[in-house]
Design a protein around this nucleic acid. Structure first.
Lengths: 332, 332
DNA sequence: CTGAAAGCGCTAACAT
DNA sequence: ATGTTAGCGCTTTCAG
């Protein structure tokens, strides 16, 4: 049997409460006995039983991270795991644990209510992908400590956190302006689906308007191949853009293909820049200048807020995390 | 306050032990009272307190997944998270939870000993990347329920699980032979570091030897650019290979670049195939035939073994998971 | 088939 | 500064 607080008390010739207090560094215990008990604990290899601890304290020291963890998500959405990583690291630093949980959009409200009521965790961070109004109601009404990753697309009392894609757009525009680029073409994603591109564009426009400049855009660039053929046509123009800004690496790759095929040099003849530092902006030739959004950092911040909310349950957080940074490379 | 087993007992006019048994579907309780209690539980919105449960049962229903979760790992190692996903899904199905934990190679032995002794989890799945002999000793000596993801590179009594890269090699070779390809060139990774390529080669050779064929290899293809330039030279030959097999998508991308630049057609003039269905084998033109290793499936299996070992602590598992499959596309 | 009672190992009033 | 004691909410013998 593992050594318990009783064994320690016996060995230290004191009561279990003194041991408990000593180990929890209570100020009502003399430094001398604390020392003694700590030494003894070390010697006997005592490890407090976390189960008993959670039970007595009525909290777990655990936060839940809930998202749709369907097969393939590791590949399709590495961002998600970068966030998870940041969350875990912060929690770990503060003595908390991270429990990862798959939930599905349709069943999430019940699942989450159940998980929280059964007190498996002290709070929950959840990906906006599984959020519904119904779930929002549960979260708010039952005042469950929560934080949504991603801004909900409906008004609510929810606590959430999101990357400022607008800021990313501004940063990108300012960088390009500084570099002397004026004729900019922005390749965006699906017109309906891709809200992120739209928000980036808003940021780009905000920055460019200050200089009374405009920007050309092409939407519905949903994959590599579309970008490649679009780029082919663009290069047929008499006057080509000075720089192509892509909303993701795949599009950038498509552009690069066409630019090369045409025999043009990057960045001499035309520059190329992309949002997201992933997956190949650093491995292609030339390496691509990219606007990176630091998902790890966002996870870290999210965890920080989460713990604050666990401590102050009436706290509400609604904020943008402005973490985009430029990684300057050879393509601009 | 949340509704407890006492409230239920009062409502059902019976003792708490009967309630407990009813809810745990014990056969010593009549079907009638079970029904009554279940209905009442539903009605009152009773959720057993998991903390109390774990405490009383002396187990958590939690398994730990430990790996090095440094910043960037979500991007650099999506495989890892695909495994995690598979693990979580299996555990969830069996009523278990997954706790994700960052550990570092150097401190892992202490961290893990501490985690397990404090009974935060019933078992631990850990990534071979953080495994050391010292840790192996801890795991074995203290007979902690564990499973290593990846075959340890030293002999031990550890339980582990790994993808059969040899099988993947064989599968690849057989596919190519069936397709009628004979002159095969295999682009491998770093000669020292990349054990996986070596194991794939072993499988390739095994299959080819049966047909008394050989294979050409080029090692130290550590990135896109190396593959691109290597490919340029290869295409200068009088007699070029019939098919290029790459150990990862980046190399394939490099090859593709050169093949196109030379004006050759894939697969008419030269075929291309790659290990790993990621990240761009499906988005390039032509789409690439790939040997996919199903990491999700491996995670799933790993979780299955883990639960077995939790139930039978003296069980040992050392096995290869043969999950590679061919995804045939346009490039061959 | 049901109930009484003894924990599970620790925390946190409260008393000394 | 230290000790006593009553839980935390549930499971699990053991009687009945």
């Amino acid at each position: 049997m593992a050594v318990t607080i009783y064994d320690l008390a016996k060995a230290a010739d004191c009561s279990i409460s003194t041991v408990s207090k000593a180990l929890n560094d209570s100020y009502t215990v003399s430094e001398a006995t604390k020392e003694k008990i700590r030494a003894l604990a070390e010697e006997l290899g005592y490890r407090p039983n976390e189960r008993a601890r959670s039970f007595a304290r009525k909290k777990n020291g655990t936060v839940l991270f809930a998202a749709d963890l369907s097969r393939g998500v590791g590949f399709e959405n590495p961002h998600l795991f970068e966030i998870v990583t940041g969350v875990e690291r912060y929690l770990d630093e503060k003595g908390y644990s991270l429990t990862l949980k798959h939930v599905e959009k349709t069943t999430a409200p019940d699942q989450i209510r159940s998980l929280m009521h059964s007190e498996q965790a002290d709070g929950i961070i959840l990906h906006a992908g599984v959020l519904t109004k119904q779930l929002a109601t549960v979260l708010v009404k039952e005042s469950l400590p929560h934080l949504i990753i991603g801004k909900p697309d409906f008004p609510s009392q929810l606590s959430w956190m999101d990357i400022s894609h607008e800021a990313a757009g501004q940063i990108a525009a300012n960088y390009l302006l500084d570099k002397g680029y004026r004729r900019i073409l922005f390749l965006m994603g699906d017109k309906q689906e891709d809200q992120i591109s739209a928000r980036r564009l808003a940021g780009l426009l905000a920055a460019l308007e200050e200089e009374e400049l405009s920007i050309e855009t092409m939407a519905d660039m949903t994959d590599y191949e579309k970008a490649r053929t679009a780029m082919e046509q663009i290069l047929e123009r008499e006057k080509i853009p000075e720089v192509i800004l892509c909303t993701n690496n795949y599009l950038a790759m498509g552009c690069m293909q066409s630019i090369r095929a045409k025999g043009l040099k990057i960045p001499k003849d035309i520059a190329l820049m992309t949002f997201d530092n992933y997956p190949f902006s650093m491995i292609v030739q030339p390496t691509l200048t990219a606007i990176e959004v630091d998902m790890y950092e966002m996870g870290w911040q999210a965890a920080r807020f989460m713990l604050q909310m666990i401590k102050k349950p009436n706290l509400q957080t609604q904020s943008f995390c402005t973490t985009p940074t430029i990684i300057e490379r050879e393509s601009t």
